[in-house]
Amino acid sequence: MRLSRAVFVPVLLAVLGAEAGAQSPSYRAPRTADGKPSLDGIWQAINTANWDLEPHAARPGPLVPLGAAGAVPAGQGVVKGGEIPYQPWALAKRQEHRQNWLALDPEVRCYLPGVPRATYMPFPFRIIQGADTIIVAYEYASAVRTIAMTGAGDPPADAWMGWSQGRWEGETLVVDVRGFTDRTWFDRAGNFHSEALRVVERYTRTGPDAIQYEATIEDPKVFTRPWTIVMPLYRRLEPDVQLLEFKCVEFVEELMYGHLKKGAPR
């Protein structure tokens, strides 16, 4: 029997969804004082999503003196189904970004990373789980956002890290993030969005030291349909581990303002 693609795709998505949800159906997370699953702790992604959300082979980096230390590691990708469903114009724009990565990636200038990129940058982040407010503090650039568990309301203004409303669905923290600027990227491969971005994140504990993280990305101006990334987050287990400062502004001032220094070649 021949399945049409229109039928096949939803069936495939349903199967993948069931698999993701079925990771550790029996695991019940420790509880916070108010009886919610605890996500408290320092977490970090271990993958190459910040290099490229899509499957990619290893490649040389753009700076010759860095040699192997600057090369890009391969990755199997984190997008369900493999590829990001860009509209044709947006795919062309992504390619332009890719050609001009160092000039255009907001990370290079130490700008706030946005969501979900903050989650899988090569830095730890800390979830501080209050009852009404969950603070997510990221080591990179001292970026931070608060997740209101009740009544966040509409975003008051566009924000680099968006405006987050959380709710519990059983064992899962679901965060609806809206109110973004169009100035953040998803990775160093030029993947991007518009200000119409909406991200729905799902954080589910799958064991004492792991969270299953899913983010569904919706942006009708850039993509043909919503798409989802999925990855585990791992607990940082070192004794006495804590977030350290990575206030990167001072590391980019020469790059951004060097031409304005006294005596600089003009």
Binding site: A33, Q129, I135, A137
Partner: peptide
């Protein structure tokens, strides 16, 4: 925001979180 064993102070100006 407090959890057992830590106090977090989110500072709006320039954005800092003291954990």
């Amino acid at each position: 925001v407090q959890t057992p064993g830590q106090v977090a102070i989110l500072i709006e100006m320039i954005h800092d979180v003291r954990i």
